[in-house]
Each structure stands twice: as structure tokens, then as C-alpha cells.
Design a protein around this nucleic acid. Structure first.
Lengths: 187, 187
DNA sequence: CGGTTTGTACAGTTTGAACTGTACAAACAA
DNA sequence: TTGTTTGTACAGTTCAAACTGTACAAACCG
């Protein structure tokens, strides 16, 4: 097609880059963020240099407010960090570009938070049922019914304990050795 | 409080159960599902017995259509399975109650799908840039610019390969041994 | 001190996703 | 065959989240 030949080279490179950013951002819902926020991360990642809110607003054609809130979200996920350059008064942000780190951090931070909350709720429920079981007037059939629930709660607790151990493993050095072995096996 | 004493026992047990279901469902956004769908899963999990769409509709006070689409979503995530009981004409569904399995399946299925798509896009981009680099008229500065992008694409590809090896590990027996070790260390 | 720049709180708007009700197709019953 | 039951497609509605613009507080400048 003639048009392509008429495009100047940096335009072509830019288009290719945009396609990759789009692809990455479309799939960042796995991290619980919207495509817009994903696009912002991609932009920062490929820009290399830190950017100001106004840079981002300009690049993505969105409001400054959106850029402000989006960049905060990315910071909470350890995907973006503050940066400083002397002589620049505006806040600067740059992409955390270690994707392995981002991946493991995500679990340690987000998932652990959630499991902790759930464990609390389940532990409390387990306690309340235990107290209920103390009642000597309880019929045998009631007892069985409650026990069924208690067994489930115990199962959930064990699972969460296991999950947390798994996250410990994710943060350990072993991870890389173990996965390396799998990679070599793949070849 | 007097009220509590007046509640009959199964009501109390029910309330405790609902609280746990709510807690679990609130946090199932990590699996990319809404609280409603999470609540449906929780209901099926604690019900034990398989349920029909009408059972669910009744239990959750929602439309049958919602139950139908929600249960499909849960099936795609391997969180719910079809069940059969003789004499019952309606479709029956029961919760997959092995949470370890659900967790590892989630990665194998959802994340792998996403990485595969991204890899495709990045590979294509890398190819196109390689072809662009063949042009002998390319200035040195253009070359460097393109090379910077190509390095990033290569980095992404390596990361995705690593991720896939990690998912292989998740599906392997090793996982349980390795995590077991961490759990014992925790005590 | 007043004047300027920068980030964000907040209210309002837009957009998309969740949810509902109806209408129908497929499966079954008689 | 006709009548009934069951699941889902589809159109419409409702609701929540994303996004914008304005207005202001905090920091900086002279």
C-alpha cells in the first residue's frame, strides 16, 4: 500500500508502539485496572523519561483530573513511582519497569489484603458457632447442621493459610530457581 | 441483646453464613467477577446440594436471566459444574468446592489466555521493526530509536515466557511440596 | 505581601455494565 | 399432534463507575 511508504518512519514506529500499548492495556484488567489506566501505564513505560501530569494529559488527550487519579491508582499498585529532576517544579512520575516485581508485588499486596479480611470474618464466624455448640440443650440434628458449616469454615481457613504461604514463596528467591527449571524444561 | 435470644438457632446460623458469603463475594473481584456473581458462588458452595436456576432466583431474589448468565460465567471460571440427579428435569449446578484447584485453574486459564494474545501482538511488532531496520538508508539516530523499542519488546517477550513457565509450575505437583515447606516455616 | 502555578476535591455528566421482563426456541409430556 | 416447561436472546432500564470542568488549597515566586 502506497500510504505506508508515505508515512515517515517515526510515525510507523509510533503506530506499532500504540498497538502494543493498546494490547497491554486491554489485558490489565487482570490487575483490576481499566483500559485507560493501562494505557497510561503503557505510555509511561515506553516513554522511558518521567512525565508530568500535563505531559500525560497532552499525550492521552484526557483531563488532568483523570491523570491525577489514574497515576495514584498505579502508584498504589507499585506500577508507577515518583521521580525528581532538578529544575522541574511539577510532579514527575515514571513507570516501574520491572514486570517481575510488579507481578509478585501485586499478589503480596492486593491478595494478602483480601485474604486477611476474609480470614477475620471466617474466624469470627467459627468462634460464634463454637459458642453456639456449647449449649447442652442443642438437638443432635442441629449439632450436625452447625458442624457442617464449621467444617467449611475450617476448610476456608486452611486454604487461606496455604495461600499466604504461597505468597511467601512468591517473595522468596526460590521462585526464580524453580521457574527457571520449568523454563529450561520447556525448550 | 434480647432479640438474639429470640431468634431461632437456624436463623443465627443462617446470618453467620450470609456474612461469610458476603465477605467472600466482596473479594472475588480478584477473579474479575462482580459481588452478585460472588454471592451466587457462595450460596452454591454452602448449599452443598446442587441447585436449579429457580432455586437460585428464589434464594437471591434476582431474575432468572441473571442467574442463567451468572452461572455461565462461573462455569467458564471452573467454579461451578453441571450436576445430574435422576428424576429432575431442570438443569442443576453445584459449586466446585476445591479452592486450591480454582486458584490454579484461574491462572492457567485466564492469565495464559491473556499472555498468549499479548505475545502475539508483541511478536508481530518485533517483526515489523526488524524489517524496518533492514533499510540501509536508515540514519544512525533512527536506528537507535527503533532499537530502544525493540529492546523493550524483547523484554516483554522474555517476561511472558517466564510467566508461562510459572503457570506450568502452578499446575505441577512441586507446587504443593514447595508451599508446604513455607507453611511449616511459618509456625 | 499579592500573584502565579500546580494538584486535587467535588459536583455534574456521560458511558457502559449489571440487571430485568418479555418473548421465543428447544425439549419434553401426553 | 398440541400443551407445558425450561433456558436464554434481546431490548429496555437502572445504576455505578469513569471521566470532565470548575473551584479552591497549598506551594512557590517576586
Amino acid at each position: 500500500m502506497k500510504l505506508v511508504n508515505e508515512m515517515n518512519r517515526s510515525e510507523i514506529v509510533e503506530n506499532i508502539r500504540d498497538r502494543v500499548i493498546e494490547s497491554v492495556s486491554q489485558n490489565m484488567y487482570l490487575y483490576g485496572v481499566t483500559p485507560s489506566i493501562g494505557r497510561l501505564y503503557g505510555t509511561l513505560f515506553f516513554n522511558g523519561e518521567p512525565m508530568t501530569l500535563d505531559d500525560m494529559k497532552e499525550e492521552l488527550k484526557m483531563s488532568k483530573t483523570s491523570m491525577s487519579t489514574s497515576v495514584r491508582t498505579l502508584m498504589e499498585l507499585n506500577m508507577v513511582e515518583r521521580a525528581w529532576r532538578k529544575g522541574i517544579r511539577k510532579d514527575l512520575y515514571e513507570a516501574q519497569d520491572d514486570w517481575y516485581q510488579i507481578f509478585t508485588d501485586f499478589f503480596s499486596n492486593q491478595w494478602r489484603k483480601v485474604t486477611a479480611m476474609n480470614m477475620k470474618a471466617v474466624r469470627q464466624s467459627l468462634n460464634e458457632l463454637t459458642r453456639l455448640m456449647d449449649d447442652p440443650e442443642l438437638s443432635e440434628s442441629d449439632r450436625e447442621l452447625i458442624q457442617t458449616d464449621m467444617d467449611k469454615y475450617q476448610y476456608i481457613l486452611n486454604y487461606y493459610k496455604w495461600l499466604n504461604a504461597f505468597f511467601d514463596f512468591l517473595n522468596s528467591d526460590e521462585l526464580y530457581q524453580v521457574v527457571k527449571k520449568k523454563m529450561d524444561a520447556d525448550q
